[in-house]
Write a protein that binds this DNA or RNA. Structure first.
Lengths: 149, 149
DNA sequence: TCCATTTTAGTTGTGTACAATCAAATTTTT
DNA sequence: AAAAATTTGATTGTACACAACTAAAATGGA
């Protein structure tokens, strides 16, 4: 057995399983808001920049239109937002929050708080911020290499 | 705008985007072996413990049978393994590598090496191992809370 | 101006993820 | 041993991800 291929020595698997575990941990909280985890991420962007285009959402979330289009249609069907072609450039689709979509932000504010409380991250803000920065740098490194070779 | 809801301040999103970026980075290398990233993970377990049951694979990978069953069927169709009911306990399904599945390990050995080379992790084994351990602890924390409340 | 190129979303098809449910086999209780 | 509970995979349905392709709209020269 090649030691370089041991599952538990792989950074990639540690990342993969931590990410899925995190999504699972969010699920019960988001379920109360009627959101899946990727839908929650889209809402986070819209609460920051209402009216963002599909392209802009893709840039923020690193997701393509094949993922976003059906996801946005589901959020639209749920009455949280409206998709609308931009008049200036008919190729663009702007995504605008509905009143319900805006109102949901207040409830959503309890989510990060509940996670910190549930998983005891209160005294570990610095640790958590450090890990986040490390992961952001890793993402940048991995993304930057995509269009080379 | 609630500062606790800023996308780029979320550890969960840093984890989510890093994980997807990692999978994307592996993809061209695994494509040469005819594997997807989750299929590669299954093969890593089987190279460690050939004949593992579906349950055992699920324990190692934190995946349930709804994910594993179709994935294993695809690997079986590709000729890399065989699924076989255990005679001792007919509920169990053992997964055995074929000759081709065993032979693939040699080629797969080049994958972690190519990743290190491509993303310049040669001098950073300690850094990488530290991050991996942090993520493994985080997974444990997040998983441990699943069956509480 | 006209045409090639680029930009932007959408569509289609494949492959995960995972909840919920089912069915069969085994184990435990009585 | 018979009934109840548990274990183990498979199935079904919903929701991502993402590659490959299409089509419409805008842009940038020649």
């Amino acid at each position: 057995m090649n030691p370089a291929l041991l599952l538990d020595s792989q950074l990639c698997f540690a990342l993969y399983s931590a990410s899925r575990s995190m999504t699972q941990a969010y699920q019960p909280l988001l379920g109360e808001l009627g959101l899946t985890y990727p839908q929650y991420l889209v809402m986070l962007v819209l609460w920051e920049e209402d009216g963002a285009t599909v392209k802009r959402l893709g840039e923020r979330l690193l997701l393509d239109s094949g993922t976003l289009t059906p996801l946005l249609k589901r959020l639209e069907a749920a009455g949280l937002l409206v998709r609308q072609r931009a008049s200036a450039d008919e190729r663009r689709v702007e995504v605008w929050l509905s009143a319900a979509g805006k109102a949901l932000e207040t409830q959503a504010a309890a989510v990060p708080q509940a996670m910190r409380c549930r998983y005891g991250a209160e005294g570990r803000e610095a640790e958590s911020a450090m890990l986040r920065q490390t992961l952001q740098q890793l993402t940048k490194l991995l993304q930057g290499k995509q269009d080379q070779d």
